[in-house]
Amino acid sequence: MTTVAALAPETTGAGTLLRAWRNRRNISQLDLALRADSSARHISFIETGRSRPSQEMVLRLAEHLDVPVRERNALLIAAGYAPVYPETPMDDPSMQALRTGMERLLTGYEPFPALVVDGMYNVQAANRGITMLLEGIDESLLRPPLNAMRITLHPGGLAPRIRNFLEWRGHLFAQMERQLALMRSSPLRALYDEVRHYPLPEGGREVACFGEHPPFALPMMIEHGGVVLSFISTIATFNTPMDVTVSELAVETFLPADPETVAQLRKLEP
């Protein structure tokens, strides 16, 4: 059964939260008012607590401020309304079509690696390309729930095999920091603090040399079977999600960055 996201009552008013989101987006009260078909005066009254916004107005402002779905529920609670976006477990029967679609997408991307992670970077689905890269890592990291950040950054995981580990590590930290700036999540903050304190693997201070022609995007250069594979990571999310769980899912695909990687992966196809 679909359940509504459980959020603790906010001690901060909706107006204060909306002002924080507006400032974060660098939008003036007038610009927000024009986008939301309101007035700068009304926006000002909402932000200062002189006027209580309607549920419709909270949702409208949140949409124009591109507030994450989970935080929209928090805004509604702060304004005195019930949250409207459910948070459905991935194993719920109503998610069957979504799970099937994701599995079909990942399978179609083989032999190249692809996976789906949730807002905590727990792996919800992965294809055989990912399974191939996980060969030989510490078994403790493969116990459910598999976490992509731990698997990648832990010295017992992929870290020792990533040739440009410092760059890739910095990229992942920046990604988590952007996410933390958009949502208040104690579990995500705890995960970030944990992985930041992982020791560097042997050779992990080395910086990869890309030669005369640097790649068009930062690759992940990982050794597998004595060969260095090079991938460019792309991330896709769902458009206009109406569920907290779905809003935080991300499909990450690893595009081969050079012909050598393509040829090597083709050789590994069953």
Rank of each mutant, 00 (worst) to 15 (best):
A79W: 06
G49C: 08
T48P: 10
G49K: 07
A78L: 05
A62H: 06
L65T: 04
V84W: 10
S51V: 03
L59Y: 11
Q55L: 13
N73V: 06
A82H: 08
V58N: 08
A82C: 01
L65S: 00
R60W: 02
Y81G: 04
E63K: 15
L76Q: 06
R50I: 01
E56D: 11
E71K: 08
H64F: 15
A62T: 02
S51N: 07
R60D: 03
L61E: 08
S51G: 01
E56V: 11
D66A: 15
A78N: 01
V84K: 13
R52T: 10
V84S: 10
P68S: 09
M57H: 02
I77E: 01
A78H: 00
V69E: 00
Y81T: 03
R60Q: 10
E63D: 14
P68V: 05
I77K: 09
V67I: 13
H64K: 14
T48K: 14
H64I: 06
P53T: 12
G80R: 13
A74R: 15
M57G: 01
E71F: 01
T48G: 07
A74N: 05
I77C: 01
G80I: 09
E63H: 15
L59C: 11
G80Q: 07
L61Y: 07
A74Q: 11
P53V: 12
Q55N: 10
A79F: 05
G80D: 04
N73F: 02
G49F: 05
Y81A: 04
P83V: 14
A62M: 08
Y85V: 02
A79L: 09
L59K: 13
E56K: 14
S51Y: 09
Y81H: 12
Y81L: 09
D66P: 00
N73T: 08
V69Q: 02
L76K: 10
G80H: 07
D66W: 01
M57F: 13
Y85N: 08
L76R: 13
V58Q: 04
G49T: 02
E63R: 15
G80F: 08
R70Y: 12
T48L: 12
V69F: 01
V67N: 03
Y85G: 03
P68I: 08
R60T: 15
A78R: 01
E71Q: 12
V84Y: 08
I77A: 06
E71T: 04
N73M: 05
P53I: 12
Y85T: 03
A78Q: 01
Y81N: 01
H64G: 00
